[in-house]
């Protein structure tokens, strides 16, 4: 993450200010409510099932050493918003998230690796519906303004691994997560 930021800062900023710029970016961040967590499940012969989770919280630590950066995020699947209330009810129900018994989905990073000038891969443990699995997300730096940083985070998960593979194979087993995370420095 650090190198990514350095590289980006190098491109965007006059050379003399770049060290200041990066050292000011290092630190702890709180994920803001203006972030967006979107999911999509493809359907054969029809529109994908997609929507957003509206309630979530999390923090991340941007370390000088990229590998020491950390992310922790949790969301409430009960806050799902989709095209139709019946879709939302089904996503909350027992065959999918079973929010009555498992109200929270959480992710905690275990390793962060730089993959490009402004991108990284995050490995971590994702817990949902009583199952915890190693999961990887791709993260791309999308800009800084004042004390906030923006990232685009994407990942693909197998629904079957989390006992949510209802409706396969008409509905794809893979759920595509697509998040725009906005962090505010603490």
């Amino acid at each position: 993450m650090k190198r990514a930021l350095i590289a980006l800062a190098f491109l965007l900023l006059p050379a003399q200010s770049f060290a200041d710029q990066f050292s000011s970016a290092v630190g702890r961040y709180r994920i803001l409510g203006s972030s967006r967590i979107h999911f999509s499940v493809a359907q054969a012969g029809g529109a994908a099932i997609e929507g957003e989770f509206r309630r979530f919280k999390g923090t991340f630590l941007l370390d000088r050493n990229v590998g020491n950066s950390k992310v922790e995020i949790s969301l409430e699947p009960g806050s799902v918003k989709a095209i139709d209330p019946r879709v939302e009810e089904f996503i909350k129900s027992e065959p999918v998230f079973d929010v009555a018994n498992y109200p929270v989905v959480s992710f905690r990073s275990t390793d962060v690796k730089r993959t490009g000038d402004a991108s990284a891969a995050i490995d971590g443990q994702l817990s949902a519906k009583g199952v915890t699995r190693p999961t990887r997300f791709s993260i791309a730096f999308k800009g800084q303004s004042g004390r906030t940083l923006k990232f685009r985070v994407t990942g693909k998960l197998s629904r079957a691994l989390f006992k949510m593979d209802v409706g396969t194979p008409i509905y794809s087993n893979m759920v595509v997560l697509d998040m725009d995370l906005v962090g505010q420095k603490l």
């Binding site: 359907q43 054969a44 012969g45 029809g46 529109a47 994908a48 099932i49 095209i83 139709d84 019946r86 879709v87 008409i170």
Partner: peptide, 9 residues
């Protein structure tokens, strides 16, 4: 016409 993304299988 339904907004439900449910095709006929």
């Amino acid at each position: 016409t339904s907004p439900l993304p449910i095709a006929t299988w």
